[in-house]
Computed example of a mutant assay.
Amino acid sequence: MRWTLGLLAALVVCALLGGAAGCGAGDAHGRGTAISASPVGTLLDEMDEEGRLYREVGGKGAPGVAIEIQPAPAGGWDVRLTVRDFRFSPAGTPAVPVAGRGIAHLYVDGRTVARLRTAEHHLAGRLVPRGTHHVTARLYADDGTVWAVHGKPVESTADVTASESGPAPGPEPAAPGAR
């Protein structure tokens, strides 16, 4: 009888630690990054540019993001994200996916420039040189997987056109001898 209670206690501990993955069975680790065998969504074979797996969730209640970019008065760009059914996780959050929670990665022309834990960010002007650029915000779960709906990452892209700014216009210089 005692061994039965011990086994039951061990099973409860395993369940609290994340099922079979918490007890050492199965292979929930992929490509050197801990990937949770969580019941949140379904891991797909598709990956982003950094090799992070997509975590598919149903369309109803799925996270969403929109991006807005405005020139900042002091230079650079102010980025504002509007999220739906999503909360940003604070630093130090465990690497376990929770429905509708995580961080956003900000990309300029496909290159990661920031990882965001808030909906607002200042993008330095040097990161958006002269020309037209694609700025993308993509949502990630706390375990590093990409939130996805219908096999597509949950993301939003805005085009930004930057031009070199010249010196501020000032008064015309007076002609020599003019008063």
Rank of each mutant, 00 (worst) to 15 (best):
R179L: 07
K152F: 09
L16S: 10
G19P: 00
R84D: 10
G61E: 01
D27K: 11
R101A: 10
A137V: 01
S89K: 05
V98G: 12
A74E: 15
S89A: 15
G18K: 01
Y140M: 07
L106S: 09
R101N: 05
T161F: 05
L17F: 08
A95S: 14
P171D: 11
L116E: 03
L7E: 04
V98T: 14
P153Y: 04
D48N: 15
A28R: 12
G76H: 08
A124G: 09
L106P: 00
V79W: 05
T33D: 06
D159L: 11
G75N: 09
V128R: 05
I69R: 02
A148T: 04
L53S: 03
V128T: 08
Q70L: 12
L106Y: 10
L17P: 01
L123A: 09
H29Y: 09
R2A: 13
T145N: 00
L11Q: 14
Q70R: 15
L11C: 15
V79F: 04
G131Q: 07
V160M: 08
R87Y: 09
G59M: 06
R31I: 01
R31A: 12
G6F: 13
V13G: 12
G41D: 00
Y107K: 08
K152G: 04
K152E: 14
G92I: 09
V57N: 03
L139K: 10
V65R: 07
A91Y: 00
E50P: 00
V96R: 14
I67W: 02
G110C: 04
V57G: 00
G100Y: 05
A99S: 13
L116N: 01
P173N: 07
L17M: 12
R101E: 12
I103D: 04
A178P: 00
D78N: 05
G100W: 06
G26A: 11
G19R: 10
T4A: 11
W147S: 01
G30K: 01
P176Y: 12
L53A: 08
Y107Q: 12
A74W: 09
G22C: 05
R138F: 00
G32H: 08
D142W: 01
C23L: 13
